[in-house]
Every structure is written in C-alpha cells, then in structure tokens.
Design a protein around this nucleic acid. Structure first.
Lengths: 287, 287
DNA sequence: AACAATTACGGAATCCGTAAAAATT
DNA sequence: AATTTTTACGGATTCCGTAATTGTT
C-alpha cells in the first residue's frame, strides 16, 4: 500500500512541474516533497523521476503513475463522500428555529431532505447553544451568527417586515413607512411570531397589539375589520395570511430593525449531516 | 483522506467480527485496532460502530463503509501493479546464463517477454553476483541457488545429460550408463557448453574430448563418424544437433553429476521486473 | 474465570522543518 | 545572484505495545 500523502505530492508535482511549486501548493517545505518522492520511488520500486542536480522530471512511467495516483485519491475521496451521504440520508435530523419565517420557508420547500424533522414550536434564543450541544437539535435557524469552538453558522437569507394598511389611510400611498409613523395604532398580530414580537413592541410607540392565538381568529378579524397587520417577504408565501378580498396595501418598513438576517447554526462535527439542508434553504430563499 | 491502514483494519474487522480476531489477523495488538477504529470514526465523522462494553459491531453505515473501503484498497493495489507492470514492459532486461541449456530453452520459448534481451555468451560462475549487483544483468540463469541480502533465486528446472552412442556398440543396449563406463572413449563436443565441460572432464577417466568451435564442423563430423556425443533433455529441443541419419542411440547417464538444477537469480529489488520471465520459463521447462 | 473492549502510559518509528550544501541558469 | 534539488540534524507528531481497568458471558 502507498500512503495517500505521497500520491498527493506526485499528482501535485505532475501539475506544477517543480518540487518547489509542489511544496508551496501543499503548504509544506521543499525537503518534505523531496523526501516524499524519494520514498514513493522506493516504495514502488520503480524509477519514476529523471534527476539532474537542479531539475527533476517525470519519466514516462512517472507520468502514468501520476495519472493512476489521481484515481486512487478520487476513490478515497469518493469513499468519504459515499459513507457520509449514506449516513446523512439515514439519520433523522431535528430542525428548530427562533422565528416563524424560516419555518414557513422550510415547509414551502419541495425538496426538504426527507430525513429532516421540523419542529414548529419556536425556540428561545438563549438556549440555542445548549440545544445544539446536547444534540436536542441538529440545526437551528437563528437570527445571529454563532461562532464558538464547536458551533458555526451559515447565512441563509433576510426577512423584511411590512405592514398591511387599509388602502384608504393616508400612509397607504407611501413607498415605505417608518416604525415611528405607526405610532399609536392598533394591530392584529398572530401571537406566535417569535423574535418579531419584541421588535414591534420596542419600535412602535404607544401601539396596541391584539394578539391572536388561533390563525382562524386572525384571518376572520382581518377580513371583517380594517386593523393593520404585519407580514414579511417570507410569510407571504404562507397560506395563513389573507390574500383575497383584502382591502389593505402592503408597505415595507424601512427601519433597520425591520430587516432580519437568518442563519443556520449547527455543530461543526455535524456539518456533513446538514449540508444538504443548507443547500436547499439558501437556494430556496433566493426566490 | 483516510489512511489505508485504517481501511485495512475496517475490512478485516468486517470479515472477522471482533477486534481481537482482527488484531490477530493483522498481527498487531487489540488496543491498536481499538484506536484505529476510533480514529476512523473520528476522521469520517460518522458513527459506523455500535459499541457495548464487551461487544462491538458495524452499523448499517459501517457495513457500507467496509464494502467501499475494500474498493479503495483494491484501487491502491491496482495502482502499484499497473505502474510496475508498465515499467517492467518498458525496461529492457539483460538475461545471461552459466550454461547453454537454459539459453536454448529461452530461445525456444514462444512467449519470451519482448523486453528481454538474451546474452548468448556464457557467463563465469564466479562473477554472477557481481554481474547482478552492478546491473550488468537483470537476471542470470545459474546452477546454484544464490541467497544473499540483495539477491534471491527461483528454481526453473533440471537438465539431464545423456550420451549418444553408435547403435552397434555394446553399451547402446543399456537403459542408462555411468560416467565410469565411458572410460577411455573419445567424444565430439561443442566447445561452448559452459558448466558441463568441467563435469565431463572430471567424471570420465582417460577420455579424449574433441572440442569443436563451430556447429557446422560438429554436425559434419558426427554425421560421417561414429564418435559419441553428448545431449540433454534441453539441447534436444535445439536444431544444432543431428536428428536424422543418426545411427546413434541416446542413453541417459545415471550419475548424480549428470543432473543439473537451474535457477534464475536476480536482485530482490528487481523482482517485479523479472516475474514475467520467471513464469514463462518455469512453465516452458515442464514440457 | 474467561473473554472482549477500552484506557493510560512510555517507547519507537515516522514525518517535518531549519539550516546548509551542491549544482545549474 | 537566484533558483532548484538534496542532505544532515533535531524536534514534533503519530503510531504502537505493555499493563491495567471495566464490564459481560
């Protein structure tokens, strides 16, 4: 058996032509590569290099060897990929979120990895790290990057908050509004909106929020009243919100606080189990 | 990249079922295999074993991994074989001999490796080791095994000496003769018969040997005289000896000295270059 | 009690980097 | 002078074996 690091040096050499360039590419020193190629020849017991004092090149056999070495490395990499992919598709992973947006997005995906189990109850922000480390969840959708020794995050997409106003109110003609302009109004709000709850309460002065536990109550009231309600670019995809017979106009809110970036956070050691999920979500969010 | 020794341990484990048996098969200790499989899981970042205090077994993913690991090892071995075979078939190897028999045998082969160059001038016995070590010859056919640090030998076959006697002499009716019985006779002998020259001179008392430099002279004289001459099971295959119009009878010589074992000797480091030649010769000598 | 797996620890082998040398362009 | 390869030496990492531990059959 020939060690992989020797094959890697050979393949790299065949691409770059000198031991010096090979060493630089592999981020080792020249003597390391010199010794490696000497050892490779010794292990194979075949002369694969023509050597001159300051020039070295592959023999015909060496060229063949480099080509074959690439196949061995490919096979090894394929081994890793195959085993990890098999494991990933046969391990159910629990996915949680601190906000409803990403959850709605998840449910709307056509290609959710079939091993993903989505938890619809929103998680509290301050237990995220704990939930990941004790493996309660394999991945959690968060509104902050988490970068610790064991956890990392990847950006998924942004959610933008809008307010849906009766089309006869004066604000309904604007291209965007500020939280400040909504001062003192009363809003119909779905109770379980996670992170957003705090944001609207903190940013709209003197407002009243008529929280509804049930979606049905929410839709009924919006339909037969003119209370404004909130939606986002993501929630719009949901069928929970009224779309027909709605006399309201959707106006984006322009404050910074109305835009929220979402990340998927997971244990570094579990990365291979969640890559498929990451890919699906980043892809879907773009649309 | 996953190190090959880990893959080898995995494949062996999947065959033998316990770490203990795996360790024994691979001629290492149990802790080595334990650590190896821990490292493999760690490198792959996939759980491939179910562990109990006293028992360990492969998960479904582990079974797949073992199967795939075998392919990686096969590919690696194939790499070695391919490179060595290519080198062997593109490197001319010089083949020498200390006796004519094996040379005649070599020339009669239909499938001499086409990279073999046969030297028809016989070599002296006492320079064989030197000739191999300074690479003057890649392989030499010898009548003795050579086993040094750098050289090894493989048995090829035996050559048996016979004497061809005029059918009217009284010895011609025997099934075999001894050297002693040939005492005082005169023989026609090809001059360049290597090792055999010494043997007939040493073993036949008071004999006269009429050495002939040229094959033509030898065949002419045998044809038009009744001098006995020597042949062997190997030389018979040669067209240098008369076969038609020969009034002589071939009688085997029964002394031990009339049987000579031949070996092919080569540098251990060159083994892969001469294996094809070895196979061809041992195969051919059987017939 | 016997067996299988694991952990702890010390030694051995391997691999790597720094420094220096040799030879070419 | 600058570049490339190679050798020599010392240090660091990795890998292994012995001995001891844990837990099961």
């Amino acid at each position: 058996m020939i060690d992989n690091y020797l094959l890697e040096e050979l393949v790299t050499f065949s691409k770059y032509g000198t031991l010096a360039a090979t060493a630089e590419e592999l981020m080792v020193t020249q003597p390391t590569v010199t010794r490696g190629m000497q050892k490779l020849e010794d292990d194979l017991n075949v002369k694969i290099f023509d050597r001159q004092p300051n020039r070295i090149s592959l023999t015909k056999t060496g060229i063949l060897a480099a080509k074959e070495a690439q196949r061995v490395l490919d096979q090894n990499q394929n081994f890793i990929d195959t085993v990890q992919a098999y494991e990933a598709s046969h391990t159910t992973i629990r996915v949680g979120s601190v906000a409803p947006g990403p959850i709605i997005m998840l449910h709307s995906l056509d290609d959710i990895p079939d091993n993903a189990v989505i938890n619809d109850n929103l998680l509290k922000q301050d237990t995220v790290i704990e939930d990941l480390e004790n493996r309660s969840f394999a991945a959690i959708l968060t509104n902050q990057e988490i970068m610790t020794d064991s956890i990392e995050s990847r950006f998924i997409g942004s959610e933008h908050l809008s307010v849906n106003l009766d089309k006869f109110t004066y604000l309904a003609n604007k291209n965007s509004v500020k939280f400040e302009e909504l001062k003192g109004m009363s809003f119909i709000v779905i109770n379980d909106i996670g992170i957003w709850k705090q944001i609207i309460q903190d940013n709209i002065p003197d407002a009243k929020f008529l929280y509804q536990e049930q979606y049905e109550a929410f839709t009924e009231i919006t339909k037969y009243s003119s209370f404004p309600y909130f939606s986002t670019n993501v929630s719009k995809a949901s069928n929970h919100l009224p779309t027909q017979n709605d006399d309201r106009v959707k106006i984006p809110i322009s404050d910074d606080a109305s835009t929220m970036d979402f990340y998927i956070s997971y244990l570094k050691t579990q990365k291979s189990q969640v890559t498929q999920l990451i890919d699906s979500m980043t892809q879907a969010w773009k649309q």
